[in-house]
Structures are given as structure tokens and as C-alpha cells.
Amino acid sequence: MLDKITFAKRYSKALYEVLEEQNQVESGLSELLSIKQVFDDNSSLSRVLTDVSFPEDKKESLIKPLIDNSDVEYVKNLLKVLLGSNKMDEFTLIVEEFEHSYNEKHKIVHADALSVVPLSDEQKQKLTDVFKARVGANEVILNNKVDQSLIGGVILKSSNVIFDGSVKTKINNIKKLLLS
């Protein structure tokens, strides 16, 4: 059996390629994100949709409004295929992978900025500009979170890399240095 990630990667890749041919990537992405929002808000939805003891016709009626609301033909098809193969719980992963490949193609970087106090717009803009230059991205989407335990400074988390400029880490480093 395929593991979930491999499965999601294959489906998202296929969907991306087919939408790219049709020049519908942007509209497809916003569709997918809004459907993902529905799944995220109703955490039991994907579980119900893959539950074998739940009647098939009820599953279809559950998913029908989602399919009807969608404008992009291929997104509709994806939902139908997933429902037919009982893989509805993979949907959010597929969307994440899809977004990932979209971001990679357009050099968009998502980053979490952890700080002790909320950053002002000006600070955010400055951080975004610096980070953009550092990672060579076209666009940086910054998501500010507040974490009191940092004492001071900012931590930037982006995909697999952490840029740690917090006072807490610096103090810890000094502690290590003094103890060794």
C-alpha cells in the first residue's frame, strides 16, 4: 500500500499538470483551498466519508453541495474520484501538496514570525523585504504569532528552516558555553 504522502503527491501533481494546461491553476487553487476550509472546519467530515459503515448514497448527498459549488471541472472530478475510491481523507493532504507545488513554481514563501509583542505593519514589511532577499523569493506571506516565552527578538519559521534570533536561544547558548 502506498503511504499517504506518496499518494497525495501523485494526485496533486496530476491535478496541477492538468490545470496548468487549461490555465486554471489560480482558480483551481482557490477552489481547493475553500473546500479544504470546509474539511478543516468539520473535522469529522473526512472520517465519515471514508467510513465503510456509512451508506454510500448518504456520502454522495453529503459531498454533493461541495461538488455543485465548484466551478472548475477538474476539481469536481477529483472529488468524485476520491469518493469513488474511498480516499476522501487524503483530500487535505492533496491540497497541501498542490499549494506546495504552486508556491514552489511562483516562488512564494510562507513564513511564521514568532515575536513577544505583535509586529507593526512597518516591522512586518521590513522583515518581509529582508527575508525575501535572503531566500530569493518573489513573495513572502508572513504570519505573525505571539509567543511570550521568547523574551525578545524574532523567530522566523519557513518550511524546514528556522531563523532563530530570539533572546531565549541566545541566553541558552551562553548557558551552554559557560557550563562546558
Binding site: 524546514n160 528552516v161 528556522i162 531563523f163 532563530d164 534570533g165 536561544t169 547558548n173
Partner: peptide, 9 residues
């Protein structure tokens, strides 16, 4: 006093 850059998983 360097910025700590770490690759994580």
C-alpha cells in the same frame, strides 16, 4: 552573536 539558522524536520 549570530543568527541561528537551523534546518529542521
Amino acid at each position: 552573536d549570530d543568527l541561528a539558522v537551523e534546518e529542521t524536520g
